[in-house]
Amino acid sequence: MADRRRGRWLSALGAAAAAGYWAMFSSYSQMICDFPFRARPVDDRVIALTFDDGPNEPFTSQIADFLHEQDITATFFQVGRCVERHPGVTARMIDQGHVIGNHSWSHQMTRCIRPGAQRVETARTQALLTEAIGRVPMLYRPPWLLRTPTLPRVLRGEGLQPISGVFCHAFEVFQPSARRIARRALAKARPGAILIFHDGFDGRGGDRTNTVGAVKIVVRELRRQGYRFATVDELLGVPAYRAEEKANG
């Protein structure tokens, strides 16, 4: 009898842990806040490509330049400390028509789960991005898609809209082959989808050669299938930046 009760207790504990993980990390969970992962309804084949954890050179520029050559604009959720290292890259991406969003300052779990640190991370990145691109971002993607109960209040304070999406490949950050990444991404492509790639790794950089190659495969195949590409704000019908740009001088 005791073993049976223990088994039930462990099963309940496991179910609660799974539910908590789904609520806080799933691409699809809406339990903590409005967290769009696709547009609906969608009448045509349109998809948004998004990139997290950059800028990370030379890979961010390789992706941005390829997309620009293909007349495609994408959304890049950037880490503050990486922008601090490459402010010119972020500014040049704006000139190419890409959209820049906030992806925290440090991409560190210990800071993302503490409300005070969460506010500092978000505000510090907002200030740096505003300086780098001359406008105030309104799109935010939390590292690992992590939503805590305090996140909605922090984002409201900065006027930010959280954005989810579907990871192109569960292990893309560890760089399987370009073809493997592309194959999984194409399997997840749907009209109105927001696909997540990584041009960096946890804000630390790293070789993203296979991601660059995968993006080229994905773009060419989706075009062959009749897809067109949009930035997240275009796809969802939300603003990418505040209406007023940062004053100069």
Rank of each mutant, 00 (worst) to 15 (best):
W105G: 07
S106P: 03
H107S: 13
H107T: 11
Q108N: 06
M109H: 13
T110E: 11
T110I: 13
T110W: 13
T110N: 12
R111P: 00
R111M: 13
I113P: 05
I113L: 03
I113D: 04
I113H: 03
I113W: 00
R114W: 04
P115M: 00
G116A: 09
A117Y: 07
A117P: 00
A117E: 12
Q118H: 15
Q118D: 15
Q118C: 12
E121K: 09
E121Q: 13
T122F: 04
T122G: 05
A123L: 15
A123I: 07
A123P: 01
A123R: 15
T125C: 15
Q126F: 00
A127L: 12
A127H: 06
L128V: 12
L129G: 04
L129M: 15
L129N: 05
T130M: 04
E131H: 14
A132M: 04
A132S: 14
A132H: 13
I133R: 05
I133P: 08
I133V: 14
I133Q: 11
I133S: 12
G134R: 06
V136H: 09
V136W: 03
M138A: 14
M138L: 08
M138H: 00
L139G: 06
Y140I: 04
Y140V: 01
Y140R: 05
P142S: 15
P142A: 15
P143G: 08
P143W: 00
W144Q: 05
L145Q: 13
L146Q: 09
L146W: 07
T148R: 10
T148S: 13
P149R: 02
T150L: 03
L151K: 06
P152T: 09
P152E: 04
R153G: 10
V154K: 01
V154S: 04
V154Y: 02
V154N: 01
L155T: 04
L155W: 07
G157M: 10
G157K: 02
E158T: 01
G159V: 12
G159E: 14
G159S: 13
L160A: 05
L160W: 05
P162L: 09
P162C: 10
S164I: 00
S164L: 02
S164V: 05
G165D: 02
G165H: 02
F167L: 13
F167H: 05
F167N: 12
F167W: 03
C168L: 07
H169D: 12
A170C: 01
A170E: 13
F171P: 00
E172M: 14
E172Y: 06
E172F: 06
V173F: 00
V173S: 13
V173C: 10
F174T: 11
F174K: 12
Q175I: 01
Q175H: 11
Q175V: 02
Q175C: 06
P176D: 06
P176W: 03
P176C: 08
S177M: 05
S177D: 07
S177L: 09
A178P: 01
R179E: 15
R180C: 04
R180N: 11
R183C: 01
R183T: 14
R184L: 12
A185Y: 08
A185S: 14
A185T: 13
A185K: 02
L186D: 08
A187F: 06
K188D: 12
A189W: 12
A189H: 10
R190L: 05
R190V: 00
P191W: 00
G192W: 08
A193V: 09
A193R: 13
A193C: 11
A193M: 07
I194S: 03
I194L: 07
L195E: 00
I196R: 11
